[in-house]
Design a protein around this nucleic acid. Structure first.
Lengths: 242, 242
DNA sequence: AGTTATAATATTGTATACAATTTGGCACGG
DNA sequence: CCGTGCCAAATTGTATACAATATTATAACT
């Protein structure tokens, strides 16, 4: 929709590799715990080891990959305890985002938020689960963007990525769906009143309840998150095909 | 058998390079805005370009370095606006740390915190500024450690590093010193009562007041380092080392 | 047979060589 | 005199070759 004024062309292979690998990890294409053999990924991405290794260092810094000196890299396992800790911080970030969004968001942004919320409700009623989750994420991103705080935005994105990964491997929800929509209604009402404190509090509460559900789901299924090696890897297009 | 006294031995050069470069940046040896010529740093550190470049990617991910494709890396400039945003998040993290520390800290840790605080007061009365600042940082790190939340700890450390850099180039303080000590007295009293809410609130307030002072100092002084391109690089030595 | 020592293999870590892009300067033309 | 276009130098980006370490397999010994 928006015409990007200038889509910054990251001409460097290692940066493309970061994005590619991050997407592969978040999509579950590279499951937690699997070893990341450099040469195999190199020919899969059509690049050499140098940019790939630089990408692995970045992803390690982001916490999506674990580097074990001389023993290879693995996709970071998803530990319920760690996810719990992440959610504790996330609650605080959500609260901050809600408060700041009320203070700094423009009327146009609030209107857009309202439209997104309507869409969310529609998708819930229609039972379109995948679309709902996407809209849900977009709503929270929108709130964070309205906070006008790049540091918050970056930190939030990092935690959201890890939480997304946890959610995707524990097939959480069903029972929580209706509840979650109700909570959305709650903080949207606060947003419409521009009640910064209340919006923040309700967002933090929403995050906390999500945390409980996700962690509970994470402890139940057989998949501990430690998947054995040789995990599924499908083909990917070479990065330097341009 | 237990691990040796030094549990983690990072034998890889790129990891050592990360720590070395990060220290150089935080110490002001590499001032904000300066270009980071790879070859020069290579011979300075006695390594080749490969591990150095991997280190630069990591530092870029941490926000201490900016990579401009094909145009070299620069030490990230210190922008007052960005520092303000960072402090907004920091306030929330301090509050969370204070609250969790009350809930999760052991009595031994609280006792240690008390001793550190006594030391802080002593150093303030003695006018030992450098020692005071070190103890101050250690106290806040101790509080964060008592929160028992690795995600919080890591995020906090990242923000603290950037704030430290801002503080060191704006030689802020003097007027704020006494006030800061008073605030420490305040949240320490809350800690002794194990009043989680109050401790968190006072820590957040302390952080907010620090933010005001730092940012104000940052906008005024002979800030030589926060220019964009090739600005103001006399030499590395005489910054704040003494 | 089980265990330990040793060697072979594979994979990672580092260094260097090569390619691509930017930057600065200079000539030419307006 | 100033602007434009091209060329040269320098620096970054990438690929490959080499070195070091961990893992696995083998074999000898108790």
């Amino acid at each position: 929709m928006k015409a990007p004024a200038r889509p910054i062309r990251r001409a460097t292979l290692h940066h493309s590799a970061v994005e590619e690998l991050r997407a592969m990890i978040l999509d579950g294409e590279l499951p937690p715990g699997v070893r990341v053999p450099e040469v195999q990924l190199c020919e899969q991405l059509g690049i050499s080891r140098t940019p790939l290794r630089e990408a692995l260092r970045v992803l390690s810094s982001e916490g999506l990959v674990e580097l074990r000196p001389h023993r290879g890299a693995i996709v970071a396992p998803v530990d319920p305890g760690e996810i719990g800790a992440i959610f504790e911080v996330m609650d605080a970030l959500e609260r901050l985002a809600g408060t700041l969004a009320c203070r700094n968001g423009s009327d146009a942004e609030f209107a857009k938020l309202d439209r997104m919320h309507d869409q969310l409700v529609t998708q819930h009623e229609a039972g379109e689960r995948a679309a709902y989750f996407l809209t849900n994420r977009q709503i929270h991103s929108q709130i964070v963007a309205m906070a006008r705080n790049p540091a918050l935005e970056a930190t939030y994105a990092g935690f959201a990525a890890k939480i997304l990964r946890a959610r995707s491997l524990a097939n959480y929800d069903t029972g929580r769906w209706q509840e979650s929509v109700d909570e959305h209604e709650g903080f949207m009402a606060a947003f419409r009143r521009r009640d910064a404190e209340e919006a923040g509090a309700l967002l933090a509460d929403h995050s906390r309840r999500t945390a409980v559900a996700v962690i509970q789901a994470l402890r139940q299924p057989p998949a501990q998150g430690m998947v054995q090696e040789g995990g599924a890897v499908t083909d990917a297009e070479p990065l330097n095909a341009g």
